[in-house]
Amino acid sequence: MTYLVPVLILGVCGLAAAILLTAASKLFYVEVDERVEKISQSLPQANCGACGYAGCADYADAIVNSGAPTNLCRPGGADAAQKIAGVLGTAAAEVVPMAAVVRCSGDCNATQTKFEFDGVQSCKAAKRFYSGTGSCKYGCLGYGDCMSVCEHDAIRIENGIAKVIPNRCGACGQCAAVCPNSLISIRPLAKHIDVFCSSKDNGKATKLNCKNGCIGCRICEKKCPNEAIHVNDFHASIDYEKCTNCGECMKACPAKVIHSCEV
């Protein structure tokens, strides 16, 4: 009897609550477009945010309700775009495959170590401590912050610098966001030639700090038939809109800092 009363009271309260809630859910029923659910299912559910929306569900909602482009999902690529198009009944939008690239080639053979760093083993912490241990303050710090955020297991630290494995990369851009030196960017996969240096020092200072650095000599600029490569802030960078993969800059570069990303 001692147990019966409390159980009964709680049971009655629960029942009353259940009835009220059922009534409320009928009264305030919201119709959800079933296409949103279907599109959400065809997305990778990585919630990486590369599309510019808060997550896969948010992007699916934006496609149906505010007409967002169907080709924004980078990890999903052409596959996801096709599925979305299937749900919407439209032609699949073209998807340019993208991949991340780390613009530094200052590995342990090319740079010197300024000091031993015993602090927290992350690029962010090392950067705050005299811009890291490497002689070049613009270069890869090598503690692998990018590697640890990568959900696709596409980044490796090799000989002190980060390397992207392009065919694994989902181009979500999380690595680009964490790199304290902003060395990583997302580029079209097909344009495989890139400049692997981001030093803003002049040629002499760069060379002093790193054997593999870009010295800003502008030879590539002159050799490029399409005016696709330009030297700004003492290092070259490529305009992918104009680049045709001809490889003239690669052959001409005296510092051998321009090469192909393909492994």
């Binding site: 709680l10 309260c13 629960g14 609550a17 009220l20 809630l21 409320a24 859910s25 305030f28």
Partner: peptide, 14 residues
Amino acid sequence: ILVIALFVQLVETA
């Protein structure tokens, strides 16, 4: 707690 949960759920649906 039961009563509070009920009202929170009501507010949420509304």
